[in-house]
Design a protein around this nucleic acid. Structure first.
Lengths: 195, 195
DNA sequence: TGACAAGTGGAGACGGTCTCCATATTTTGG
DNA sequence: CCAAAATATGGAGACCGTCTCCACTTGTCA
């Protein structure tokens, strides 16, 4: 599952330089930069950029991979220490806060989720996103198993809500809308099936 | 509010031809067509295309304007004939079905909602989308006023959910995920505020 | 019917994306 | 330690969509 090729020393250095510079730029709000310029600014050639990251999304994924992994680890901890429905609530609220505070992450998450859809093979591109999806699915399944939330809806519904939250990032009322949607989804989940 | 300029006869003809051809192409799944080709295929020059529709989104908006208006009219009818919360439910379920059956509409809706966010002035671009937003806000307000849904969350949360539904269009489980999310949102709305 | 306004079309400028390959660097194994 | 082989580099320039510009056509109005 891990990298099959050990990667040459200079190659690894260049790759790291690209990620570091991209992270810095994203943090500064530069998302719409010319793709080639990521190379220029990192001090490498465009060829090198494209070899390591075939697309803009691949670069963004690499930048946010660790962050997403950390988020997932946090979820596992919550799952081990709280009742399942509270773990889910805590995770979702934390995630939404995190996304709200980090435009780059929100954008990347939205793009990768949308990309993942197509018929594309998607090697490890959506890895980070998929990890979050898996964690959400586990939390939902655990809570459903414990009987604290309804079991007639899939975790996909929650991911769809997250997608909406990421995709509406720019909106003036984004923070409130996001919080409200999470509130509704959680309240809905704690509801018994009707009839 | 309506078109200030009467538009010359041939201009109107060209505009209509562009919309008609674009509608046809969208219906056939051609979304990623070169923008200039919409002109070629409609039998007009690129200049004409750009004069009438400065962007791809403007063209899409024009194509789906009527459809969105019809949707809104339906909502007004529902609002007049059903209890407010049922009107909201019926409208949302109908809308989601409609979106699911119409990729072009879903894509356009997603794009326009996302576009609307920015600091852009957005003349009448997001008109159709805004109309839907208004209708949802009215339905929510009516139901909240009637006391059949909670009144501590804004209509923006519902729009965020819709955005998620549109943005995840390609997903294999899209239909189920969308339906589930609407179920959750509605169930959540019918919940009392906690504490 | 003439003159002015309104609209047209498509060649080509522009700018981002991505490829290609002669050159440079690292690794390997003798 | 030194080839030779393997691996990686970088940046010039091809490619392709987007969009502008303006000489010309079409419609309108008196």
């Amino acid at each position: 599952m891990s990298h099959a090729k050990p990667l040459r020393a200079d190659a690894r250095r260049n790759r790291d330089a690209l990620i570091a510079k991209a992270r810095e730029l994203f943090a500064g709000g530069c998302f719409d930069l010319r793709f080639d310029d990521f190379a220029k600014l990192a001090g490498v050639g465009t060829g090198t950029l494209y070899r390591h990251f075939p697309t803009r999304e691949a670069l963004a994924e690499a930048v946010y991979r660790e962050e997403l992994t950390a988020l997932c680890d946090r979820a596992r901890e919550l799952q081990a220490t709280l009742p399942p429905d509270e773990a889910l609530e805590s995770f979702l609220r934390g995630l939404v806060d995190h996304l709200h505070a980090n435009e780059g992450l929100a954008r990347t998450f939205a793009t990768l989720m949308a990309t993942r859809s197509g018929t594309l093979a998607e090697g490890t591109l959506a890895e980070g996103t998929r990890a979050v999806g898996q964690v959400v699915a586990d939390l939902v399944a655990a809570a459903a198993g414990a009987g604290t939330i309804r079991d007639d809806v899939g975790a996909g519904a929650v991911m769809t809500a997250l997608q909406g939250i990421c995709a509406t990032y720019g909106q003036p009322s984004h923070r409130d809308d996001s919080g409200d949607l999470i509130t509704l989804v959680l309240a809905g989940l704690r509801t018994r099936h009707p009839q």
